[in-house]
Amino acid sequence: MPTEQPRGVLIAGRYLTTAIPYVNAVPHIGFALEVAQADALARFYRQQGWHVRLQAGADENSIKNVQAAETAGLSVVDLVERNAARFLALKESLDLSYDDFIRTSADQRHRRGVERLWKACFERGDIYKRAYSGLYCTGCEQFYNAEDLDDGKCPEHGTKPELIEEENWFFRLSRYECTLRDLYVKGATEIVPDARRNEVLSWIEHGLEDFSISRSAARARGWGIPVPGDPEQVIYVWFDALGNYITALGYGSDDGDTLSGGGRRPSRENTSSARVSPVSTRFTGPPCYFLPVCPCRHEFLSTAMSPSRGAR
């Protein structure tokens, strides 16, 4: 992989990511299987001549981690550092070829990116604050409607959710119902297998509701990324954690990050790309191409380009 290339054009390659696990406990065999499969796929694409970036990490800003630390008699920082190190150690023990491993509570690049993502959504009018009451399962880190419970218990964990009443920030998911439906129906965003695509479409057809993307700092014991401008709230762990797939690429950095380009689609002929270093965690130069609609309102660009046939 070249260490220096012209700025402002797109690299032909594959961006592969693993799920980033909670670190309330040590790794289990199921996660080891996942990362081994992801690594095998990355190695396959590299052998085919693709530029590949394999991204992994640890999801650390959850209330579940706070509770695990309290049970263990440790500070949250000590617990997540200890367990995150166990997940990172899989790279050596399983001979994995990660290009990067991001820790959501410790990497400042991640925090900067999450704060920028929040502000971008807020400026678009996608975020608003209101009082809320709901049934919350800490194991799932989500609210449930009463009709979604199994005999009053979480269908996943078999525990009775806690009734929570507080003021939170909400994301206007309902605003994007038609946009998302069109993306999936027209195939602009691909979901495989078809059974999962149909499941997502059915979910959308039932109507999308706005959802809470913050938690009170008091209930989170002060653990998490504070909401910009509202230190009494922390950013909901899933809004925070899912951002890792772009913050790990430099989103939110000060010197020209992945998603801060001019929104220009590169030509089919001009597909060799931004500056990339094999030891760097930052991609610089190209416009937004990892999200259907990024917070900067840039055009969606696909990275699924064959090195032999160009864009497809």
Rank of each mutant, 00 (worst) to 15 (best):
Q37E: 05
I63T: 14
P21N: 14
R14T: 04
L79P: 06
V77K: 14
E81Y: 02
G113S: 06
I63E: 09
L79E: 09
D107V: 02
S75K: 11
N83G: 03
R53N: 02
R109M: 05
A120Y: 01
G73V: 10
T104C: 08
D39R: 08
W118C: 08
R103A: 03
H51Q: 12
L16T: 10
S75Y: 10
L90G: 04
P27V: 12
D39P: 07
L96M: 07
R14W: 04
Q55E: 07
V26A: 15
R46H: 04
L54S: 06
F31M: 12
R14H: 10
F31P: 01
V114D: 04
I29M: 15
R124I: 00
T71E: 13
F31G: 13
A42S: 15
S93G: 01
Q37K: 08
C121E: 06
W118Q: 05
R103E: 06
A32K: 01
Q48C: 13
R116G: 08
Q47W: 06
D126P: 02
V114G: 06
L90I: 08
E92W: 00
F101Q: 02
V52Q: 02
A25D: 15
G49H: 09
V23N: 11
F87D: 07
W118E: 10
A89Q: 11
F31T: 13
Q55W: 01
E81A: 12
L117D: 04
V35K: 08
E123R: 14
A25Q: 14
Q48V: 07
V35M: 10
P27N: 12
D100Y: 10
E92T: 07
S105M: 13
W50K: 08
D99K: 05
A19G: 12
A25P: 01
P27S: 12
A36D: 03
L74A: 05
V77M: 05
D100K: 01
C121W: 09
D126K: 06
H110M: 05
L117Y: 13
N65A: 15
D107E: 09
A68F: 09
A38M: 12
L16Q: 10
F44I: 03
W50N: 13
E123W: 02
R109V: 10
Q55L: 15
E115D: 08
Y45R: 12
L41C: 11
V76G: 05
L94T: 06
D59K: 09
D126W: 12
T71M: 03
T104H: 05
V77P: 01
G49P: 04
I63D: 03
A84C: 13
G13M: 09
N83M: 02
N24I: 03
F122K: 14
L41G: 00
D78S: 13
L74I: 00
R46S: 03
Y15K: 08
F101I: 07
G49N: 09
D59W: 10
E70W: 04
D99V: 03
T18F: 08
P27I: 07
L16P: 05
L74M: 15
W50T: 00
T18M: 12
Q37I: 15
I63N: 06
A106Q: 15
R124N: 05
L96E: 06
Q67P: 00
I102S: 11
Q48P: 05
Y22D: 06
A36Y: 03
E81P: 00
Q67T: 09
V80D: 03
F101M: 05
A106P: 01
K91H: 11
F44P: 00
Y45H: 15
R112E: 15
T71D: 04
A25N: 15
F87E: 06
A56K: 02
D99H: 14
I102H: 01
R53P: 00
A40D: 07
